[in-house]
Design a protein around this nucleic acid. Sequence first.
DNA 1: TCAATAGTGTCTCTGAGACATTATCTG
DNA 2: CAGATAATGTCTCAGAGACACTATTGA
Lengths: 216, 216
Amino acid sequence: MIWRDEHGRRLDDYPQPSVAVDVALLTLDQDGRLAVVVHARPGAHEHGRPALPGTFLRVDRRETLREAALRALRDKVNVTGREPRQLAVFDDPDRDPRGRVLSVAHVDLVPPDRITGTTGVLAPVGPLPHPLAYDHERVVAAAIDHVRAAYRRLPDPAGLAGAEFTLLELQQVHEAVLGEPLQKDTFRRHTAPDLVETGRVRAGTVGKPARTFRRR
Amino acid sequence: MIWRDEHGRRLDDYPQPSVAVDVALLTLDQDGRLAVVVHARPGAHEHGRPALPGTFLRVDRRETLREAALRALRDKVNVTGREPRQLAVFDDPDRDPRGRVLSVAHVDLVPPDRITGTTGVLAPVGPLPHPLAYDHERVVAAAIDHVRAAYRRLPDPAGLAGAEFTLLELQQVHEAVLGEPLQKDTFRRHTAPDLVETGRVRAGTVGKPARTFRRR
DNA sequence: TCAATAGTGTCTCTGAGACATTATCTG
DNA sequence: CAGATAATGTCTCAGAGACACTATTGA
């Protein structure tokens, strides 16, 4: 069955764009600060500026955008992503000199232990050290907005603190993501209703042992 | 200059998808309820189910997604849109029987007087009378979430109440969008800081004349 | 004067935020 | 016991929400 539109034309009688995905893969660096994974082998047309991991959507494999985002993370920076989420479509006709390329920007936030084997480079967010390729700075900005909004709503939705954690550990993760210090009693009261106690404590250090929690 | 990727292939050596835009065009119907504009001439593959106005992105015209959304509104339902905003990309490989079609869903919210000459049909949102084509019910749901969030933040961001309005008129617009009754004194105190008085009043009816306001 | 609508004073309740105190561990 | 960290009692303040009262018009 060949479908035709109201002008009698088939789908591929119109020129089609290329569709790419780009992923702002965020994590915490060794200093506990929010960082983004970039890779330093961009196309020659990008003058060596580091780029976010990205790839083209493989229509011939019936791939979804989510699958393409996960594949980009695996192939470009050797990270198994977790849950890439769409941010926006960047569609400036001139954004890519190779032709008309729409980019579906994604964000993913993963614990640092998933980053260990990466072939990418951790760049702390904030004032980025070097300009990124394409419009990727805007992608990173949107990604940060997204994860900060999520962390204001719920305790550690991405599980950066691991499965079991003390409230201090959880607070430090939130401070890293939000980029601002938090007050411990306010933080405790705000997050406790969404946590369940494990019944265990984290001993071995000086001071009163802290109870550990899991996310609900 | 012909750019090639790391496998030595050009952009169009890979199959490309078609990219469509679909617009959930919301407005208020004559009863002051939130409604969506649909058109009843969908493709034969949609078994006559009404669809949101949509069209394919015309890459050959260097069109942006925003421009395609505005063109869809003009050509399909004869409405001049205002400010279509991206919601999400729907990318299920089977969502369209004609082939691989990505749909970039948009939302726009316009005053009722822009709808007067439409060739579309106003369908009140909520339990929709008939199922919509494709995955357009999900688009409408996302669109409603979007406009309700916007109306909870600011007074009438889409200008449904016109340029000059009384607080009662503004409240009725908000009640229509949010789908719930509001309290007049709370509403007044919440919105007044974001409004400027015109100095004029709306007289002619019974009762104390109401001052009129403009959005800042 | 009455009915109708506009506008405001004020009370209560809730939750955020901050300070200070108590509790419980190690050395 | 001293020092360190965990956990909580409690005070204050701001804002949402609701009720009731006052103000101003047309009929």
